[in-house]
Design a protein around this nucleic acid. Structure first.
Lengths: 211, 211
DNA sequence: GTCTGTGAAGAGTTTCACAGCT
DNA sequence: AGCTGTGAAACTCTTCACAGAC
């Protein structure tokens, strides 16, 4: 099978969300055109993306909504549950516990970690805060397979090293800094400052072109 | 000037952050190689990115740290302050108020908006919650130029329409859904569920190739 | 020798055009 | 007719190779 690009996977996630919506609304079949419109891409993009993984449609008719939903779930690993740890019991880390979309897609936040002794042992929205030093032990006990890093930039690399040592192979980083991980570990970054700066660039560059 | 890609702008934001760090550590000159290593890209990528906007370096010596930092700040619009509104006073919206990186880069959260009457009038971390119905009025009064959408997916399009009506031209969307805006409005999306699903895909596809 | 800046080549991604099934 | 699936073309982005400045 050819190499799949990250953009394809990103789009599959979005198609998946659309299919959940179509399914809830009782739609039975859906065309690449309808999926495309709902996601701001072209129909051929949708078909190309899906064709990386098989032949899911019927010519002349389109795709069966609930069947395609299940296929994409299997591709993305959403047919099962995942135990996730959040490292950093600050504002962002705590807010993410109650992010509904996570739970609905089978991502269960089973532990929070922090190094602040005052926070350790507390319960935040039903989740216990553990000592970051106990990460390896708890990760094994609770079969944690993913970690979300929500600590300040300056401590992020140390934290990510501890996560890697604990055997976790998938990391979502919210700290605004570049992190290095061994290549058998998958790292994704969400950098909110970068996004806002992209907006300010758009605003100032529009001003320039207008004058 | 040639069209600048979004990836170039993203990387510029990251270089900017590295330059802040180098500057604080008293470094005077920096090479494209050093900037590249800190950001996980190649030196030639750094030079290409910078060359879109001018000749900032000196051959044989590299770039002057504080001068390049100022140049990038000007390009990205970080030489001035921006007033930002957060729409949705839920967990995520509230957590973002105290995200340090925003304030440090000149993004000031000046208002929260919600439609829940119980929340309206409250103060959350020094920021007042306003009625979403008063968006246009407050946006003008407080000269708000950017909005962060932190509401559930099903209300996001209605909210974004109100934001557009109020004259705001830059929107950062945290709701896990595709939004449409007129083309003079810049929209960026942060979809945390998509990122986590990318991780689960990586984990399941690794398992498959191993077996 | 060191390091920047850049046209040209290469790699990767998206779109086009159309064959093929219902 | 309507819609999927796909090789080929077009386009975009990254890397190479090297000229030019210190």
């Amino acid at each position: 099978m050819a190499k799949i690009s990250e953009s394809t996977i990103r789009r599959l996630s979005k198609y998946y969300r659309s299919l959940l919506y179509f399914d809830r609304n009782g739609m039975e079949m859906v065309s690449s055109k309808a999926l495309a419109e709902r996601n701001g891409v072209t129909p051929v993009q949708v078909r190309k993306d899906l064709s990386c993984f098989g032949h899911f449609g019927t010519r002349g008719l389109g795709y069966n909504v609930s069947q395609l939903r299940r296929e994409i779930a299997k591709i993305l690993g959403l047919h099962r549950n995942w135990n996730v740890a959040i490292i950093g019991a600050g504002h962002i880390g705590t807010a993410l516990i109650s992010y509904k979309e996570f739970g609905e897609q089978g991502f269960h936040i089973v532990a929070l970690f922090d190094r602040n002794p005052e926070k350790i042992g507390q319960i935040r929205r039903r989740v216990r805060v553990y000592d970051i030093g106990d990460l390896s032990k708890i990760a094994e006990e609770k079969r944690i397979e993913m970690a979300i890093i929500a600590v300040p930039a300056q401590s992020a690399q140390a934290v990510v090293d501890a996560v890697v040592t604990s055997g976790i192979k998938a990391i979502l980083n919210f700290a605004p800094t570049n992190l290095s991980v061994p290549k058998d570990v998958t790292l994704r970054n969400v950098n909110m400052a970068v996004e806002l700066e992209g907006l300010s660039y758009a605003l100032v560059s529009k001003e320039l072109t207008r004058s």
